[in-house]
Amino acid sequence: METLWKLNKLSKKYFIRGLTGAEEITALDSVEMEIFGGETFGVIGESGSGKTTLGKTMIRLVEPTSGEIYFKGSKITGMREKEFIKLRRSFQIVFQDPYRALNPRMAVGNAIMEGIREGAGRAQKKEKAGHMLELVGIAPERIDDFPHQFSGGERQRVAVARALSTSPSFMVCDEPTSNLDLSIQAKILNLFIELKEKLNLTYLFISHNIKIIEFIADRVAVMYAGRIAEYGSTARVLGNPLHPYTKLLVAASFFKKTETDKIPYKVEKQGCPFSRLCPDVREICRKEKPELMPAEEGHFVACFGFTNNFAEY
């Protein structure tokens, strides 16, 4: 499979100035990964682990602090806006909350038409927008309706139609079903799968729900404190988790007892961010940050437990 995205030591730091002085928050910390064309790449982690920042940084809605992003071999970071604008149409994003992602004062047809370029005439654009709505399972007659006339699930469909209006090849799906009921969630997940087959899309699918990721993603990255703790094929990572954090996450999702019973989100600044909670912590974990290393074919894990001489630490 062709490599579509390559991230190299991607980092993003936010500086927050408050009453008590400036604070630095690391949202992404040397993220390295590859995404293949045509796959659904899942990102899983808890709030604050950097999932959303990762998605936004990749499509340059957020500028990274350091590191490089390559898309189809060309470097996106540092690319001039003039050049990047040609690529921008190929990237789209669907947000978590369909109530806030749509302009309440704009008919959904107009929202979709904004992204359509070909066909200069308004009539042609409108026809195309109608097709988009049809594609996501909404009657084209509702093209002049406003967002408040749609239910939550329908709004998410409209948001997807709007995202498709620029004919993207890559889509960031940022928790697109977490605000929806179970039966509607199932329909939206089906829609994403259907569209992927029809339009040959690649997804970065962000979720905190392991069961959804297990169902929809081909490969998955587990994030903790802005770093990738583990990544590889979904079946391997979730079926046979190697990183102690992934183990904990999988166990919690399936309501199994774990060694660490209470899991407060405490991040260690020095050393491995998970070292404070890790049941098998060693001296080295408190001093150095582990890099991603191959544990088996196509399965990487950032944990000193998988170095050959771990016993010595």
Binding site: E46, A252, S253, F255, D261, K262, I263, Y265
Partner: peptide
């Protein structure tokens, strides 16, 4: 979050 929710349950 998943792990926090687990703790509450």
């Amino acid at each position: 979050d998943v792990t926090t929710a687990y703790g509450i349950v």
